[in-house]
Design a protein around this nucleic acid. Sequence first.
DNA 1: CAGTGGTCTAGACCACTGA
DNA 2: CAGTGGTCTAGACCACTGA
Lengths: 250, 250
Amino acid sequence: MNKVTPPPSVEADQSKGQLSARIRSDIERRILSGEWAPGYRIPIERELMETYDCARMTVNKALVALAASGLIERRRRAGSFVSQPLVQSAVIEISDVRAEVEAIGQTYSLEILSRRQRTSTASDMKRLDVQTPRPVLAVLCRHLAGKRVHAFEDRLIDLVSVPDAAELTFEKDPPGTWLREHVPWSEAENRISALNADAALSAHLGVKEGAACLQVERSTWRGAQPITAVRMYYPGDTYRLVAHFSPKGN
Amino acid sequence: MNKVTPPPSVEADQSKGQLSARIRSDIERRILSGEWAPGYRIPIERELMETYDCARMTVNKALVALAASGLIERRRRAGSFVSQPLVQSAVIEISDVRAEVEAIGQTYSLEILSRRQRTSTASDMKRLDVQTPRPVLAVLCRHLAGKRVHAFEDRLIDLVSVPDAAELTFEKDPPGTWLREHVPWSEAENRISALNADAALSAHLGVKEGAACLQVERSTWRGAQPITAVRMYYPGDTYRLVAHFSPKGN
DNA sequence: CAGTGGTCTAGACCACTGA
DNA sequence: CAGTGGTCTAGACCACTGA
């Protein structure tokens, strides 16, 4: 049984930072360099304790983090193994629209096109994924970056979950910003697709009819209770969703 | 100073599962229900130890997990506070193209349109984000679901990082699948946009010229070393990227 | 400068499961 | 059934920072 020594490349780092972080990055490096290939059985916790001369909890913390990030898989009695990198997952940060515009150095402004309170129509109920009619607030608005239309928004807010929204005029904050700041949520879903602008959308977005647009549909819930369903439309030629990611999230 | 008692709703669960998981979900429930609003200072670790009659490490594990998921923010000396839910992040699972097709109950097949080895052109170098010329493999292919085109793929593989790719004909596995199974990576980036199909793309995808298409550009690296850069094109009318998510990921 | 979180120690008992 | 990971205990010392 070979004694595993810490990789020499980090010998100089020994004093820096947390020990568990160092153990984690040592193992990560060996996996990413290919030294420990998928399927390789990494040393057991008790062996790593000796290698790094530390408590088992310290090693455990590093290995739990590696398992959470998907780099290794752990099985009782069998040991810990380098994962087959099968599933990739990307974290998309959905920032505030206003922040999005200001991040590119432009002036944000909001234009409310309509704001109507009503009992949910069949189409509303489908969007909110509910079976029974309920009071909703329907808002159409445009987000401007300078004079250019950055996005067109078509939003439904469930007034059962968010009664306060009935009073809002959204003069200060766009609906999404207000909701994010005032309403806690537990789950959401994004659906991203491309579509050709029809007459109405082309007018709203200021693009030619038929131009490719990116549509992001987002639904948000608190438990089983719907909060809001929104469709955001962006001109396809300028807008991009960018996501950085690492193996299996994180 | 009020003694915090575990929420009554879970009194019955007391014996179930791990204690740290129970502490975590108790706090999560109070935050999501709005009982503990953003900015609220949650009990300190030593207080929670008494509430749950456990060791500090057990409480700490729960709080570290809550902080990692973004529900709380922790500050030395000040305490732990319920976060303002400002940033949303979504985890997109990027599954294998073949799996994607088979998941909708259709037969997957691959059609290699071209496969060329060359020294990187200026455009290749830009796509791979490298400054010096290097050998690359350029592959164009189509992914079919039954007889319908599911996606069109335009891929570059860096032969310095992945010399083995030079020998591949991709008869069995599509390039993405082969790479995922054989080449470890550490970072990737997705860029999602919408575009109108030009003559070439409409022919490849079997859609009308001008039809909105979803484009996913993905670049993958191992450390500073580029591995591959791919553009996947999907017909906009049928394809959707779907992402489920919770507050601040996870 | 005292209170809080960050990290670690040196154990323990147990659940699970594959050699 | 023995080896491995899962979780917890009851401490400890320290870094940081805001009342």
